[in-house]
Each structure stands twice: as structure tokens, then as C-alpha cells.
């Protein structure tokens, strides 16, 4: 008898051979912010940008992580597209989905090339108070753990016959009431972990006003090129085309 298991890794893996891995996280934050502005453009310009962005992702060896992230949103995209098309128009449905795809790609671009420690350091350098920078980086770091916990809860619930069948979309929808069997343990575990981390960090002097930083950040020529390229592209898209 062979027994299957649903568990599979979902968190983004760091793409060590991406050229963007060497870029300063502040540069990547700048690029991500700039792309988030681009989503406000009209459909024709957005289409041009999506093309250029795809080439950029290929150069950065990040196309696959981005596609995988977008694939995970397939149901959301499908429903969004259908509802927008039905209620408003085809153009509107396309632009809304294109924006969501672009934003998901930005997430993949940043977190496939940046560790949460680098994110925290970048935020500190951008004058975000350490307390908030640390909390935010820890929150992103916990996403992977959340995924593991969610899987463990599903297994534990399925072993007592209380878990919705997530492999079948329609069964999942029909038994959506069972989600409470997953969400309550998830909230309990997350709250407990948050407390444990708070205690552990304060027991190691987290609130010290004398804190120093062992790791440092430095801009390189690559960062200058990336930022200049991003600015030039946005100017071209807004004023030239």
C-alpha cells in the first residue's frame, strides 16, 4: 500500500545565482516601489511594461519563482477576472488581473533575492526605528513557519476527520464551514509563537538603547545601474509613450 501526502514546500527559496542577490536591498525596495507605481498606468502602457519586466525577470533568473507565485493565485485571478468581466468589462478584467500579476511578481523579485535580515537592515538604514524594522523582518521570516504550521494543522485535523479536502476545489468550497478547525489552531499557534519570540528577544536585550550593527550595507555600481534604469523606464513610460 502506498500512502500519499499533501505536504510540499511553498515558501520562496533564495535564488543565490540571481544577479539581484548582489544588489543592495534598498535598491530592490526602490525597484519594488517603482513597479508598484507602474500598476496605476493604462492598459497599453502596462502591457509594454509587463513585456519589459518579463525580460528583466529572465535576466535576473527570477522568472520561475515569479511564475510559481502567480500560479498559486490562479483561483483568485480566475474569479477576479470572471467577476470583473461579467460586472464591468473585459478591459477592466484584464487590467485588474495584470496589476495583481505584476504586484505578485514584485513580491517574488524581492523575497527571492533578499533575506529577512537584509530587509530589516535596509529598513533601519532608511530610518525606520529598529523596533519596527525588526518586527517587520521577523513577520516575513515567520511566513515560512506559518506554512509549515498550516500543513501540520491540516494533518492533525485530517487524522481526526475534521479537515476540508483542499485537493478538490468544490469540496473545499462546500465544506468551508470546517475552516474553523484550521483557523482556531493557527491563531493559537501564531499567538504562542509571537509570545515566545517576544520573550526570547527581550531576554537577549532587544530593547537596549546601545545596540550596534554587525552587518553593513553598501551601494555598488550594480545598484546605480539598476536605479538609473528604473527611473529612466518610468519616465519613458509616463511621458514618452
Amino acid at each position: 500500500m502506498r500512502i500519499g501526502q499533501a505536504g510540499r514546500a511553498r515558501q520562496l527559496v533564495l535564488v543565490e545565482d540571481s544577479p539581484l542577490r548582489r544588489a543592495d536591498p534598498r535598491t530592490k525596495l526602490f525597484i519594488s516601489g517603482a513597479i508598484s507605481l507602474v500598476v496605476m498606468m493604462s492598459l497599453d502602457r502596462l502591457a509594454i511594461f509587463l513585456g519589459i519586466y518579463t525580460i528583466f525577470l529572465m535576466w535576473a533568473r527570477l522568472l520561475m519563482p515569479a511564475v510559481q507565485q502567480i500560479w498559486r493565485l490562479k483561483w483568485v485571478l480566475l474569479i477576479l477576472f470572471a467577476v470583473d468581466w461579467w460586472l464591468i468589462s473585459l478591459d477592466h478584467a484584464v487590467i485588474i488581473c495584470a496589476r495583481l500579476v505584476l504586484l505578485t511578481g514584485v513580491f517574488a523579485l524581492f523575497f527571492s533575492t533578499t533575506t529577512t535580515r537584509e530587509l530589516g537592515l535596509a529598513l533601519e538604514k532608511l530610518w525606520v526605528p529598529y523596533r519596527y524594522a525588526f518586527s517587520l523582518s521577523l513577520a516575513f521570516q515567520s511566513l515560512g513557519l506559518l506554512d509549515d504550521e498550516w500543513r501540520a494543522i491540516r494533518e492533525a485535523q485530517s487524522s481526526r476527520g475534521a479537515n476540508p479536502e483542499t485537493s478538490s476545489f468544490w469540496r473545499f468550497v462546500s465544506r468551508v464551514g470546517d475552516l474553523v478547525s484550521l483557523t482556531v489552531p493557527a491563531i493559537v499557534l501564531t499567538t504562542k509563537r509571537a509570545w515566545a519570540i517576544t520573550e526570547a528577544s527581550y531576554a537577549r536585550g532587544f530593547d537596549s538603547p546601545h545596540r550596534t550593527s554587525y552587518h553593513t550595507l553598501a551601494f555598488s555600481r550594480l545598484d546605480a545601474v539598476l536605479m538609473a534604469g528604473t527611473v529612466a523606464l518610468i519616465i519613458l513610460l509616463y511621458w514618452r509613450w
Partner: peptide
Amino acid sequence: AQMLALTVEDEIIFGLENLGLAR
């Protein structure tokens, strides 16, 4: 539950940074 960092090295460094020590 008390692990705060992504590497063993950073886990140790976290507490040392909070002591205000030089690099």
C-alpha cells in the same frame, strides 16, 4: 520557538549587537 534569525551565526550575533559591542 526562541529562534529569531535565519542562520546559526546571526542567532548568536543578535544578542551581541544588543550589548552595544564593537564589530
